[in-house]
């Protein structure tokens, strides 16, 4: 490579405003609600803050606090049998994910709204509404795999790392996790807002694609991911996905993007493994649960 070209590339790289580094999709140009909020608030990203690490342990500390806020908002369903089934499936998926070394735990939120949440550190919530919507185990696995991938791809953590909150520097951030105080409260609020107000659209597309990959690795029929999106579209028309529709791109667009993305993946032939019977055996509503 010629030296002038190298110099030109160097200048190009380092003269670009920091905001243009859309790490995790939360930079300027991010189309998600949180991305817009960051932009409005002038919380410009900086390359320096992007370097501040958040360890798995710190992420789990944050995740516990965010999970508590999710539980406070919706309540958790007392349904041990179904919860156990969900945790079995989540563990199986997570073991084949790109981040198998942290624990993943799932609980059911007591709301009929169709939605799911992935808190940092592996705390996953599916609503009763989404459990009642899916028709077989592969579709349920698709929902879980999508949520797990938000954790494996560290979407919320990346947004946090690039936020103004991390301008305290590495030591400041580490201290905040060691000794809970106002900064950790702010981080928790930031992460909770990201969860409730929506991630960047690109993160959702990314998680759809990862979900297909995880389903394929485990051997579930990965077209189930498309079927879930079709279901979401039909529920959206019925008005059953009001919260989800505010925080996610439209299912139609997600299907379109996912079709393009999956063409680039080297996937096995779909296995056809759907398991509607095992699903029916384990998914019970709280009224039917005898535990």
């Amino acid at each position: 490579m010629k030296r002038p070209l190298l110099i030109f590339l160097y200048l190009l790289l380092f003269s670009t405003p920091a905001q243009a580094f859309d790490i995790g999709g939360f930079g300027i140009g991010g189309s998600g609600i949180l991305g817009e909020r960051l932009e409005q608030a002038g919380q410009a990203l900086s390359l320096a803050s992007a370097l501040i690490p958040i360890s798995d342990e710190e992420e789990i500390i944050l995740g516990k606090r965010v999970a508590a806020r999710v539980i406070t908002r919706y309540g958790v369903e007392d349904n041990a049998a179904t919860t156990y089934y969900l945790n079995l499936m989540a563990t199986a998926i997570a073991q084949r994910s790109d981040r198998p070394d942290i624990p993943y735990h799932v609980a059911i939120l007591a709301t009929d709204d169709v939605n799911a949440y992935a808190c940092p550190g592996g705390y996953i919530f599916l609503t009763r509404g989404v459990l009642d919507m899916v028709r077989d185990e592969a579709e349920l696995a698709a929902v879980l795999a999508h949520e797990i991938s938000h954790v494996t791809e560290r979407h919320i953590v990346t947004a946090l790392r690039n936020s103004k909150l991390m301008q305290v520097g590495t030591d400041g951030a580490a201290a905040a996790f060691r000794t809970p105080g106002p900064l950790l409260d702010q981080m928790t609020s930031f992460a909770t807002d990201a969860l409730f107000e929506g991630l960047n659209k690109s993160d959702e597309y990314d998680s759809d694609q990862k979900a297909v990959e995880y389903l394929d690795r485990l051997g579930y029929d990965y077209p189930a991911m498309f079927d879930v999106l079709e279901l979401l579209e039909s529920r959206r028309k019925q008005g059953a996905t009001k919260v989800l529709s505010k925080t996610h791109p439209s299912p139609k667009t997600r299907i379109k993007k996912l079709k393009i993305a999956t063409r680039k993946l080297s996937l096995e032939e779909p296995t056809g493994i759907r398991m509607p019977n095992r699903f029916a055996q384990h998914i019970s509503s709280p009224e039917k649960d005898t535990s």
Binding site: K64, A67, A68, R69, I71, T72, V76, T83, Y84, N87, L88, M89, T91, A92, Q95, R96, P103, H105, V106, A107, Y123, E137, R217, L218, G219, Y220, I273, M275, R278
Partner: peptide, 30 residues
């Protein structure tokens, strides 16, 4: 307080490896 207790309970939801292996095997998964 109650939410924090539920989070602590979630932390106990580890499923044993042999249960996961059976789950995979029974489903003819990979």
């Amino acid at each position: 307080e109650q939410a924090n207790k539920i989070v602590k309970w979630m932390d106990t939801l580890d499923v044993p490896d042999d249960a996961v292996a059976s789950f995979i095997d029974e489903g003819d998964l990979n």
